[in-house]
Amino acid sequence: MDVKKVGIAIVVIFVLFFVISQPEQSADFVTGILEALADAAGALILFLRNLVA
């Protein structure tokens, strides 16, 4: 088996275990990631607007 495939399988198993055993914390984690991405996108848009202006 390829090392990359084994690594991906381990990550998938860990994520599934985390989601099944702690669904509320998993949802909070995903929400936090999405909020961070939204903040980063907003900051990038603000930067580009100020760059053009």
Rank of each mutant, 00 (worst) to 15 (best):
I33R: 01
I8A: 06
Q22L: 07
T31Q: 12
V6D: 07
F14H: 03
G42T: 08
I20R: 01
D28H: 04
R49I: 12
I33W: 03
L37A: 14
Q22S: 06
A40N: 05
K4I: 15
I10C: 04
L51E: 06
G7P: 00
F47S: 05
K4L: 14
L48D: 08
I8G: 00
N50E: 14
V3C: 04
I8C: 02
D39W: 03
E35M: 13
D2N: 10
I8E: 08
I45A: 12
A41Q: 14
M1A: 12
V15K: 02
I13V: 15
V6G: 01
F17C: 08
G7D: 06
I20K: 02
G32A: 03
I33K: 03
A36C: 07
I8K: 11
V12K: 05
K4V: 14
G7W: 03
V52R: 12
L51M: 11
I13L: 09
D39R: 05
I45S: 11
A43G: 06
F47R: 13
A41P: 00
L34M: 12
L46D: 11
D39T: 05
L37W: 10
K5H: 05
V19G: 01
V3F: 08
L44V: 13
S21M: 13
E35D: 15
I20T: 04
A41L: 15
I45Q: 13
N50T: 05
